[in-house]
Design a protein around this nucleic acid. Structure first.
Lengths: 218, 218
DNA sequence: GTCAATCATCTTGTATACAAAAGAAATGAG
DNA sequence: CTCATTTCTTTTGTATACAAGATGATTGAC
């Protein structure tokens, strides 16, 4: 692997964890990774500190850095918080959203719909993300937007899995349309509820997926 | 200053920033701080990475680490998010709270009340914190609890200032009692609204404080 | 005197060196 | 053969060294 700038190492490691190249419990070997990235241990250890704070890695003193993926319970909790954050974004956005943003939501939805018809999961995912990011942004609170984006990113690998559930994509679509309608009507509470349910159902689906997987592995 | 373990350096710096020893825009001199802490630059730089991710410090490549305190707008945004997070904690807690926890809230409130009568701001602050932390915990969602605690901590220096507002402490007290009542009655939405308003008013007070200060300094 | 370019100094970023701790392996007692 | 103790190896934590970029000063042109 070619040498990298230290700034990017944390990001690269994050990607490797998301890609499941490293799984829960794996120790991140400083010297091995240093060789792979073509750098010394120093910038790597700095990257570990960042990852530790973001919760992807646990730093055990004198033992090393270990990958920490959330277990089923923590994951459910994170989805619950995500649902609430989105609900808040929606409630604020209902009062503040611009016409252009509404059009962008409709456009994202149309492309989502097309993706559903072509069974194009990847494309669906991209447009789905645009839909949600637009709502975060239209909350008019950039701190909230950042926090929502951060958690959204963290849940990405898990959300992606559950999208493959049978019939999930069409259901998700109609939920999106309900959200747009509530936003267009300027109804804060309806928007909040629609978004909360939309995200919460993802958490529940995930829970179901987890419990079925648990019976096989470990 | 006596030598410190590297794990604590980030915390120590955080404290120095909260104490306003370092203010917005200050550059954190690696060599100077290394001397002060009695360590080399290496553990210091690792600490910088953590602080950077938590948002207290901005790392400018090839320039150094700079203290970044939130400006008025970002602060308002953070208070808005805090208000919403507390509202969510309250809504969940209303369904899940234990009798013991209700008693702890009542106890914290009683001690708050006593502190108000003695004009004991410090004591009020401690019991107020116990009150809020208990609600976070009773949300039954430890991820949410962590996030709320994190933001609460971050807003600490600013909240403390605004507690000195004339008449704020008694008002805050009665708001607390409304929250306890809603929780005891098991009413999620009432609890959420009571907490949201309780925290939001802090943000507004702060805004007022800021704008009056702005006219003097800078 | 002002501005620009060059040079010196200071800082950061990264590699390397070394000490201390943890873990693995080997030795020895029972 | 098993378990405990000791030795050896590996790995982390930190200091130091050095190179490259940034800052500031000095010199020179106009």
């Amino acid at each position: 692997m070619e040498p990298r700038r230290a700034d990017n190492i944390a990001e690269a490691l994050e990607e490797l964890i998301f890609n499941a190249t490293f799984v829960d419990g794996d120790r991140l070997d400083e010297v091995r990774l240093a060789e792979q990235f073509g750098v010394s241990r120093t910038p790597l250890r700095e990257a570990f500190q960042r990852l530790a704070l973001s919760g992807l890695v646990e730093l055990v003193p004198r033992r090393g850095a270990f990958v920490r993926q959330p277990g089923p319970i923590e994951l459910m909790e994170m989805f619950e918080v995500m649902a609430e954050l989105e609900a808040v974004c929606g409630r604020l956005a209902a009062k503040r959203i611009s016409e252009e943003a509404l059009d962008e939501l409709r456009d994202a939805n149309a492309k989502c719909q097309a993706a559903v018809e072509r069974q194009d999961v990847d494309r669906y995912y991209i447009e789905n993300e645009r839909f949600h990011k637009t709502i975060y942004s239209q909350s008019g609170n950039s701190f909230l937007e950042q926090e929502a984006t951060k958690l959204h990113k963290r849940l990405k690998p898990f959300r992606r899995q559950q999208l493959r559930f049978r019939g999930r994509m069409p259901q998700s679509m109609s939920e999106h349309e309900a959200v747009v309608k509530a936003l267009a009507d300027g109804k804060p509470e309806e928007t909040a509820n629609a978004l909360r349910n939309h995200v919460a159902v993802q958490g529940e689906k995930f829970h179901y997926l987890m419990s079925s997987l648990k019976k096989q592995a470990v």
